[in-house]
Nucleic acid binder design. Structure first.
Lengths: 206, 206
DNA sequence: GTCTATATCCAGATAGAC
DNA sequence: GTCTATCTGGATATAGAC
């Protein structure tokens, strides 16, 4: 086989993988791992059911790969946010706004949320997925640090920082679910409503 | 068959139904409808798999019955709350506190939440379940009314009341999920963190 | 009312042809 | 790389005995 053909094949293969993952993400998010049939994925991807096994060993493997993507993206974003030269309040604001607008612009964001949720809630997931979910605490830690900073500089309310981080994440998670369920109808609520949990007086200009 | 035996049988039957529902609730909540096998339910209930069909026509029927219970309880509680002789702020406070402490005291509360969530998110649920989910707007309406009242009397912030109701429910929902996932480890965060979304100055004494 | 045994079906995964 | 055909296993649901 010539190098050219080899390259071409690789491209096709990558494209297929992308295609499969993208379709599987939506299906897993809206039907759940167990209810999503392997034929659902192959049909959505316009390939035969047999061919799917050429790319992935099992349904579970696809799920795990997507879940890993979801966490990688989320944690990377959180760490970038933390490292930005912004005040704690600005960071929290940015996180909320970015997430809320991400829901609107990019359906995948909401789907990734649903995937993470599912993996967090359900016991009936692959062991590998359970391992990935354990990395969740990293997300809480980043936000806890930002909140603690904001308390030190006096802008944030003085509730337990860990509690605040929990409420931060669970609230956004709740909104992400709502968004995914609402679909096109979803209209992001004013970010300042949420910010009211963190600071005493929300400036109307922001 | 004598009346006494008939009564006894009815009692047994009712007890069994209760037993089945209670076990199924936990299983559905933690594994999901699709991943929960009918044998999971029968095993948890200490009855044979065949006997389960004596009480329920199918797995789906059990799910629907539980979902209906969940909504009935939730909506009833919301309407009672609304009718209490309390200020809007007191009502919101009570709702948050009751829900948070309900999570702690009664595992079923959190499980019901997970069930409703599942039914809201997943497309792969029985048609009857989809119908029930449509009643969801009632919950949002009650809270929207309370918030609107609170805005009229000047205690609540003046964001869009519907938005605030959405954030209210989605936040509590997010917390319920977190609680269910954490299990015994769950410690309810200070309710005042959430109340900060609604009013300008949270009194430290409450 | 309860159990065990069985029929049926369907989804996951593999094999082999092109 | 891709498809069709097939095997296998497991889950739902039913039948029939006690």
């Amino acid at each position: 086989m010539s190098p050219r053909n080899k390259e071409l094949n690789e491209e096709i293969k990558d494209a297929r993988r992308e295609q499969i993952l993208s379709n599987a993400l939506k299906l897993f998010a809206r039907k759940g791992l167990a209810a999503t049939k392997i034929t659902d994925i192959s049909t959505a991807s316009n390939i035969s059911q047999g061919l799917l096994y050429h790319y992935y060993k099992s349904k579970e493997q696809i799920f795990v790969e997507l879940l890993r993507d979801a966490y990688d993206k989320m944690i990377a974003a959180a760490l970038v946010l933390e490292s930005l030269p912004l005040s704690p309040l600005e960071k929290i604001k940015m996180a909320i706004e970015k997430l809320l607008q991400g829901f609107d612009e990019n359906k995948d964001t909401a789907y990734y949320y649903l995937l993470i949720n599912q993996a967090s809630i359900f016991e009936a997931i692959p062991d590998e997925a359970k391992e990935i979910v354990k990395g969740r605490f990293l997300l809480y830690d980043v936000i806890t640090r930002i909140i603690t900073d904001g308390q030190k500089d006096g802008t944030f309310k003085k509730y337990d920082a860990k509690d605040m981080a929990v409420v931060f994440w669970t609230s956004l998670n709740g909104l992400a679910i709502y968004n995914a369920v609402q679909g096109e109808k979803f209209k992001a609520p004013d970010a300042n409503i949420l910010i009211g949990m963190f600071i005493e007086k929300v400036s109307p200009t922001n």
